[in-house]
Computed example of a mutant assay.
Amino acid sequence: MTLDPSGTVQSVSNFSLKDEICDYWSDRAATFDLSASHRIEGRYGLPEWQQLVRAACTLPPTEDLVGWQVLDIACGTGEISRVLTSLGASVTGLDFSETMLGLARQKLAGADWRSVLSDAEAMVQLEDASFDLAVTRHLAWTLTHPQDAYAEWLRVLKPGGRLLVVDGNFRAPKSPWQRLRNLLANWLSGRQPPQGDRDRHDAILDRLPYRDGLNAERLTIDLERAGFDVVGPLPVRPLYGRGMRGYGLAERLRQSAANRFALVAVRPTGQGI
């Protein structure tokens, strides 16, 4: 409780923006895997994601991650963790939504996977230099304190450890080609209703550091400020092209019209925290 200038007692809420974000994604958890943006289809999508992870780690096309300790940051329902465990990695899935983690535990039962309930910006449960690789998808643009997060991600990686970020500039203006793809998709299947509560989503996004959009160039600058060496981008077209062949044409057009990117960064060897 606090007093306003007139002396009237006012209540103070402890419900923060981060709490809003957690609640928003928790509320979406039950239908999360229904979205082609999130579910990784097994026949075509999984192999493309496996190849992206191998490329991020500079591994040959047939080599696996047996013996690797890998962190899936903001793992959600466990789709990226499923890719990582399919490559033989020992995976830690971290998320601040217990609802999301509960679904991931069901999905990954029996796999070499453990869950950690934690904020991606303050991973106090994780020890320094614990992981060979960290992967995160569709998280960076939602961070409330990006530099705090990147410092934590750097801390938990081993020297020489790699970070793979797959994200998108979801507020960038669409190119004429992208608009045409969406128009064709709507003509084929009708305009799709927004996923989740769009007003609630936008009200959160308007208060985030990356509210004007996040692209690979901006993320590169911020990761380098945190101490990473940014290796460079990786192509995402295979994920949302060949990797989407398990979906209908309309959904494939929509997914390929998004402004997504993948970026690889490395914790320099010999670097102290």
Rank of each mutant, 00 (worst) to 15 (best):
R242V: 09
P209K: 12
G241H: 12
E217K: 14
P5G: 08
R28L: 15
R105W: 00
R200V: 00
A104V: 03
G67F: 10
L219K: 11
L157P: 04
A172C: 05
N259H: 13
R218W: 02
I80F: 04
W187C: 07
L108G: 00
E224P: 02
H145A: 13
A120C: 13
Y247E: 11
H38R: 14
Y247I: 00
G227P: 02
V116L: 12
D19K: 13
Q10S: 10
V53D: 02
R260Q: 13
T220R: 15
G160F: 05
G168M: 11
S86I: 04
R254I: 02
A134F: 07
V266M: 12
I40Y: 01
K18D: 12
G88D: 06
R237I: 02
Q125W: 09
Q69S: 15
V166Q: 05
A111Q: 14
L108E: 00
E20T: 09
N14W: 07
E217W: 02
Y210V: 01
D119F: 04
D19P: 05
T85Q: 06
A56G: 10
A172S: 08
R242E: 10
S37G: 13
A56T: 08
L157K: 02
L101H: 01
Y247V: 01
S256K: 09
G7P: 03
D167F: 04
G232C: 12
E98N: 05
A55Q: 11
W187P: 00
F131T: 03
L84H: 05
D23S: 13
Y44T: 11
V156Q: 03
D212W: 08
T136F: 07
R162W: 00
L71E: 02
P60D: 13
N14A: 15
Y240M: 10
D19E: 13
D229A: 12
P159E: 01
V9G: 03
D128L: 12
I73Q: 01
P193N: 03
F96K: 05
D199T: 11
H201W: 11
A226M: 10
